[in-house]
Amino acid sequence: MKYVLIISVFVGISSAKAHGVDGINLGPPSNDPKSLVKTMKADKDPALPRIAEGVTNGFKLWSAGSVVSVCFFDSSSDVRRQFADIANTWLKNANLKFDFGAAPDFRSCDDGSQYNIRVSFNNTGNWSYVGTDAVRVDRSAPSLNVQSGNNSGQHVTSANQFKTVVLHEVGHALAMEHEHQSPAAKCDQEFNWPVIYRTFAQRYSWDKEKVDTNLRSLAKSPRIRTTEYDPNSIMHYHFDAWMFHRGVASKCYTAENTMLSALDLATITAIYPADRGGQTSLYREREKRVRSVIDELGLSSEQKAAIVERINEVAQTAAPGYAAVLVTGGDINQSRGCNSAIAGAQATGGSSISSQSNCN
């Protein structure tokens, strides 16, 4: 789930970089038994389960017009205020709201209630579950963590770094996908894999299989976003120059982005439109791209069915009754929506989402 292709971590010896690659912190643990990472067979490609789960991330939207509740674990009121101010820049033109509780202290996560997004500032890296995955896991545990730019939630130590990381992770919490290199760039061929294998073995004691599973999946992941390629997106990964054969001259090297791009803001407005029905239309457009991608991956019919089932499950929050259609070799496989669905958030300010059966 989230942590699949949503890892926001770093490489770099002297300073941490938001949405780069870090050999240690790869995101939150998966405690969802339905995660495709846990259930899908890797076959000959160890990156496949992560790629498959990443395909579903674009369907994990909150319902347009709803209020998403947010709480904080141990942290100062000043750090909470800065987080809230930064997070709200995403929603200037979107039909969605965050509820952080009353200023100046904002809401703590330890009041016995269940909230949608649960923010911590622990020493576990920078990560977030994608969109509504946050309510499919343990509601008493963090769903988003910011390690960089602050001192365990007590003080902001680097305003620019803190802002960059918060923007990126909140983007994931809003179901924004990673912006990858253009598919035509074939970036997997640009990476110096022998150097990467050797460096991660020395620096983090990773073997080749672990590098392939966690890093190569990033380079090989298909681009699901239906907008034009945006190298300036806050959601774009930054890979250090040493990871490429040609360093900064590589066509796949991009500088680190530190603010929302114009297309980031346009995208968040599109996925949270004034008309809730617009989310269903968006899903249909993304479904076309997913259909093409999973055909290119050469998956078995069982693997494709698992992806479709997962998409239909997570899509219910924003589009109740949505059922993706997968056309393969003349056969049409369609889920009729008889899945465990997440519903009812918008009527309660987003703080009490319950599981429902959605069988027709």
Rank of each mutant, 00 (worst) to 15 (best):
Ala184Val: 07
Asn214Trp: 10
Gln189Gly: 01
Gln189Met: 05
Asp188Gln: 14
Ser205Asp: 08
Glu209His: 11
Asp188Gly: 13
Ala173Glu: 08
Met176Arg: 08
Ala173Tyr: 09
Thr199Tyr: 05
Asn214Lys: 05
Val166Leu: 11
Asn151Ala: 12
Glu177Cys: 09
Ser143Tyr: 13
Phe162Met: 08
Ser152Asp: 12
Asp188Phe: 09
Glu169Ile: 07
Val211Leu: 00
Ser217Lys: 11
Phe200Tyr: 15
Leu167Asn: 06
Ala185Asn: 06
Gly171Met: 10
Phe191Ile: 15
Thr199Trp: 03
Ser152Pro: 01
Leu174Asp: 12
Ser143Val: 11
Ser152Phe: 11
Met176His: 04
Lys220Arg: 14
Thr157Pro: 01
Asn150Met: 09
Ala175Thr: 02
Leu218Met: 06
Phe191Pro: 04
Ala173Gln: 10
Leu174Gln: 10
Ser205Asn: 12
Pro194Leu: 02
Pro183Asp: 13
Leu167His: 09
Leu167Ser: 08
Gln154Tyr: 08
Lys210Gly: 05
Phe191Ser: 06
Lys186Gln: 10
Val156Glu: 09
Gln189His: 00
Val166Ser: 12
Ser217Thr: 14
Val195Cys: 00
Asn192Met: 12
Pro194Trp: 00
Asn145Cys: 12
Glu177Thr: 13
Asn151Asp: 15
Arg139Glu: 09
Ala201Ser: 15
Gln154His: 13
Tyr204Thr: 12
Gln161Val: 03
Ser143Asn: 13
Leu144Ser: 05
Lys163Asn: 08
Cys187Lys: 02
Glu179Gln: 15
Asp188Tyr: 07
Asn150Pro: 06
Phe200Cys: 07
